[in-house]
Design a protein around this nucleic acid. Structure first.
Length: 293
DNA sequence: ACAGGTCAAGGATAC
DNA sequence: GTATCCTTGACCTGT
């Protein structure tokens, strides 16, 4: 089992950089390159920090190449020598230490939108994430179901139809996560049955949004969805003020982590910790929970 | 140096 | 139909 955290490492001094469209228009592709190089150096620094703290799972920020999937972007960053040199270094490093790398396109990347232009931009965004993951040897791209659009069944059907149109490289990496208001774990399983998309189980979202189905039966489907793919990927966080508070707590409570372990039984999974205190929350779990096992 | 408003995105909701 | 909120962290402008 590998534990990981998302994007930001609070222990490191440098931050990720981004820019506004206006800045890109003023300064052109060179500013994007400058920021992308900076961001990739940050990723490498995070992986090095992770290795020295025994953290072998990491989610890369979606904004590594600022405006990387924007329709106005004119720079082929995936062919740039300096970018390739850095991504190669990252890939080599993560292979050496058997790390898992993932990305999570944002809430505005929607496979089931009824709007043609929104779908087009969403697919462009998936292509951006796919290209970057290919370069660094990342394996997982997590998205949510999307909106309900007044009819959940139609929205699910649209997801399945649009999923079929994606490139095989994207399909190899795409995973569908249950969310905390619209797509329950059982909705996500419905989509899996028609599309074979592996399911990323988020236990906090499940606590916020579930129609009282027994978790054991649902998890059977979750695990089956990964059978030919790899080690399942699971998310955990604690509610800020109560168990079904959608906001994330700074850390993960020990009891929440133990209750995840108990529903997972002995299944080998990689766990992404989604807590405000990022890598510090992972260290806390390692310290508190691992010594008990 | 710092505060606070802005950006980027699409959907949901209230009016 | 329109406005506002949701969410996020860094940008960016004004002081």
């Amino acid at each position: 089992m590998r534990l990981g955290y998302a994007c930001i490492n609070l222990s490191l001094p440098t931050k990720f950089k981004t820019c506004r469209l206006a800045t890109f228009y003023q300064r052109g592709p060179s500013i994007i390159k400058e920021l992308s190089v900076h961001n990739l150096q940050n990723v490498l620094a995070a992986l090095e920090w992770n290795r020295s703290h025994n953290i072998l799972f990491y989610r890369m920020s979606t904004g590594i190449v600022p405006l990387g999937s924007h329709e106005k972007m004119t720079w082929d960053w995936w062919n740039d020598e300096d970018i390739l040199q850095l991504t190669k270094q990252i890939k080599k490093y993560k292979d050496k230490y058997n790390m898992r790398l993932s990305m999570h396109p944002g809430q505005f990347t929607l496979l089931n939108t009824p709007k043609e232009d929104v779908l087009e931009r969403s697919i462009a965004d998936l292509e951006y994430h796919d290209k970057l993951l290919q370069l660094v040897g990342g394996t997982d791209m997590i998205i949510h179901g999307g909106g309900e659009y007044g009819n959940l069944d139609l929205a699910k059907a649209r997801f399945i139809e649009n999923y079929k149109k994606l490139s095989s490289s994207i399909k190899r990496k795409l995973r569908l996560e249950n969310d905390d208001r619209t797509y329950t774990l059982s909705d996500v399983i419905d989509i899996y049955k028609e599309s074979s998309i592996p399911i990323c189980f988020d236990i906090h979202h499940h606590n916020c949004n579930n129609p009282d189905q027994p978790i054991e039966l649902l998890l059977d489907h979750v695990f089956t969805s990964w059978d030919k793919v790899g080690i399942p990927k699971v998310h955990i966080s604690s509610g800020k003020e109560h168990i079904n508070d959608r906001r994330h707590h700074d850390y993960v409570f020990e009891k929440d982590f133990l209750s995840l372990l108990s529903v997972l039984k002995d299944k080998d999974v990689d766990i992404m910790v989604e807590a405000k205190m990022k890598e510090l929350a992972v260290l806390k779990i390692q310290k508190e929970v691992y010594k008990k096992l």
